[in-house]
Design a protein around this nucleic acid. Structure first.
Lengths: 199, 199
DNA sequence: CCTACCGATCGGTAGG
DNA sequence: CCTACCGATCGGTAGG
């Protein structure tokens, strides 16, 4: 019964160490030491150090993308989509702050083809935001004239959270998500009142 | 006449490599190779690899702080201070995108006491923003109720620029600064009209 | 899961 | 500025 979780334990230890010291600043011996193992034993559960990084980053980007798509699919109102999508964005960067920080910081440490894959996944996620903002503007529910920059601005606002948020701090995830949603809505110049039915 | 610039050339080469591959992902041999030197020769111009990183990061944080203080000192209107300060913030992250990205990404690679020094410098910079936003709210020129989070949000918005901005891209620094200033003003709920004189 | 060990590479020094 | 070289450490393999 200890067997199926060993790979996951290794990955969790690696995630913490990559978060604290970076990929190149972490040795396989250190990861093993966290689990009271020796470095060679790790290789019964993984391919390589590099594969560990690829898995952590790709899974994180895939997860936030899926969370976004699920959350925005539950309503037709474009501002409500935006609100739910951004709440997911913020909450992801608090709940998976370590993975998110690694995904942001260690892209350069990815070898090909992993690096290109991750960049493509990120482009896709950004594109989802751009499209949503464009739609809000097209429907007259938001006023920004720079959908491109607005997308970058609100995404980066959320990513930053992963660098300073502390789960045990005084600020709750819910308060943070609410306040940041207001920030994001004002960046795109949102009219947050419900849509008028056409006369 | 080649002598006084050698240290600077080394630092510039190190900045580019740390930006591309990270501190631990860059070797002294690679830095030397960029300048057609051998690694041991570098040590005629610097103390250690670590000192190179400390210098790059501390100078960058010191510079943006000074730029902010200079820019905000040129007016008494609090919203105009905010606007000039944020323009400096944005322009810094485009002009010194490499240094800024290193300063954001490689803090964990700093040994003590450098790491604590940099964190303290950053706390101070954040504090300047918090104070400015609080003042704007106190004067009735901004409406946010979360000066703390607003400070984080607009700072992170600007920092993010260092990751995607390309000086040779289609977007000019001026356009970016203007658009982002509007974003930041709306985050704090700024009334951007000039202050009424008291009746 | 371990010990023993590999070749490669690291930051840095000695000495000129 | 160089060559020669140091001890330490790296990711990973062999073999059990």
């Amino acid at each position: 019964m200890t067997e199926p979780s060993r790979a996951r334990e290794i990955r969790e230890a690696a995630t913490e160490l990559f978060y604290e010291r970076g990929y190149h600043g972490t040795s396989m011996r250190e990861i093993a030491a966290r689990l009271n193992m020796r470095a060679p034993s790790l290789y019964n559960h993984l391919e390589s150090k590099q594969q560990l990084l690829v898995d952590i980053i790709e899974d994180d980007v895939a997860l936030i993308t899926r969370e976004f798509e699920d959350a925005t699919a539950t309503t037709d109102d474009v501002i409500e989509k935006f609100r739910r999508g951004f709440e997911v964005h913020v909450r992801h960067h608090t709940r998976y702050a370590h993975e998110s920080k690694i995904a942001m910081t260690e892209v350069a440490a990815l070898e090909e083809p992993g690096q290109s894959e991750v960049k493509e996944m990120r482009r896709h996620y950004t594109e989802l935001w751009r499209t949503l903002i464009e739609q809000a503007v097209a429907e007259g529910r938001a006023s920004t004239q720079s959908t491109n920059l607005a997308a970058y601005a609100i995404i980066d606002m959320g990513i930053g959270i992963a660098r300073w948020f502390r789960p045990d701090g005084p600020l709750s995830e819910g308060t943070l998500a609410g306040t940041y949603c207001d920030f994001a809505l004002s960046v795109i110049g949102a009219d947050s009142s419900p849509p008028r039915s056409r006369t």
